[in-house]
Design a protein around this nucleic acid. Structure first.
Lengths: 247, 247
DNA sequence: CGGACAGTTGAATGAATTCAACAATCGTGG
DNA sequence: CCACGATTGTTGAATTCATTCAACTGTCCG
């Protein structure tokens, strides 16, 4: 039986994290087993010591302030968002373990977006200066940074398509399938998972009201597509959900 | 008197383009006067020979096909867009002279987005392999690539905020101010300019119907905010337009 | 010159929102 | 460990902003 991701998240948090053994920090090729023998581990050691635990509601970085660090999520989850002048918020992404935060603003002096932790979350903090140095020295890291930014752009485009052209059903279906895929990629169950964000956050992200999210969830449930128990989701008919999401 | 950008666009097209004198290709630091004496111009010379003229409706690159080139726009304008499985399109950006296209998909094997020329447009085509090589050799180029991608992510976030949280008036105001800013940055008039895209394209980009775009334009005109004559726009009250756009 | 396309406006429709009330669950301090 | 206030989730009814459908005008290009 495939364990659901909440169990694994707990395990990951307890796992020892050294430059040599940390699987989640592999993003930058900080680990020998991920990246082969060509990695200079002297720098990563200075990086990994900035490991930190945050709890629900804590802010990783704030809009308008200079961005000092890049964040690799080891366990837990984070939301990032931007705001209008008059305080309306648009969530731009939800980020789970193994993902990287803060590369979007490397060119900007001040961060335009903000990141807030959704549940107890362990992150590796990498000072931007250290990353830049590391980037100059190791070609594979350069490549990874480019790849991660490129991926973010692709994700952004997908969300724009959703916000601009999809109706409520398609939005929620697309949202759920996105998480299904990401969990699967991390060897969690693609059909049974726990969403760490509120209905209100989901609605905000998808550009619809909290109430509409609820209504669509109930309709999907009535149609036998899935079952929900608060934030626990079990997808029953992945194929039909894909048909609804429509690219 | 400040010339409007259509006149300058014609001039730019006629201007001679050599690795030494091309101002528009300065994006990658291809020109000595832009980038100082540390640039190796042997590579740029291989780049600049791929200069090409496209006309209205031509495709620069297509979704699902391998992306071979990066495009620097010398004059004219281009729209980029993504599509749903069933053919709905979301325009993700309009790009004018001096801007760069195609960096978003460098990590992907196949391009997810597509680029189509809005009017007669001159571009410099840089093969991705050449850029990668050039990137490895020249640190400043690396930095530029990162900066451009970072800027694209910031722009994307702004559009998401618009699509997810703004009403029709705010959307069109934001749209017009964006162009105003970009034209100003290129020394064109920030209050009198020609939009190269149709009302339908504007609507698609802003996530609203073509008709709604028209209605808002008329209302803005009735309120004395601006005047329009087809695609020619003259902004009369920039301050009030900013107040409407709301971040 | 004429057909196609782009832009504009009005009227009817509708999908999602807002407002409201209530239920279920969480978490915190006694 | 329980109770109670706060938060989160759900559902119904009324409302609204934008869309859709339709008709028409102006303009561009072959």
């Amino acid at each position: 039986m495939i364990p659901d991701q909440s169990v694994l998240a707990r395990d990951a948090a307890n796992e020892a994290c050294s430059p040599i053994s940390c699987k989640n920090c592999g993003i930058f090729g900080l680990c020998r087993e991920v990246n082969g023998p060509d990695v200079d581990l002297s720098l990563p050691e200075t990086i990994v010591k900035f490991r930190k635990l945050y709890k629900r509601g804590d802010v990783l970085y704030r809009a308008g302030e200079p961005q000092r660090d890049i964040f690799a999520i080891r366990s837990g989850s984070v939301k990032t968002y931007v705001m209008t002048d008059d305080g309306r918020m648009q969530i731009t992404g939800f980020h789970i373990s193994g993902e990287l935060l803060g590369l979007g603003s490397v060119a900007a002096i001040y961060s335009a977006s903000e990141a807030r932790v959704l549940e107890t979350t362990m992150v590796c903090e990498v000072p931007i200066d250290v990353l830049k140095k590391y980037c100059e020295d190791v070609p594979s890291v350069r490549q990874q940074v480019i790849n991660i930014m490129s991926q973010e752009i692709l994700d952004n485009h997908e969300l724009m398509l959703l916000l601009g052209k999809k109706n409520a059903d398609e939005r929620l279906a697309t949202f759920l399938l996105g998480f299904s895929r990401r969990f699967q990629k991390r060897s969690y169950s693609p059909t049974k998972f726990n969403l760490s964000m509120s209905r209100s956050d989901i609605g905000n992200y998808l550009g619809m009201a909290e109430e509409t999210v609820c209504r669509v969830f109930t309709r999907f449930q009535d149609d036998g597509l899935l079952t929900t128990e608060r934030r626990q989701v079990k997808i029953l008919d992945l194929a039909r959900l894909k048909a609804i999401a429509r690219g």
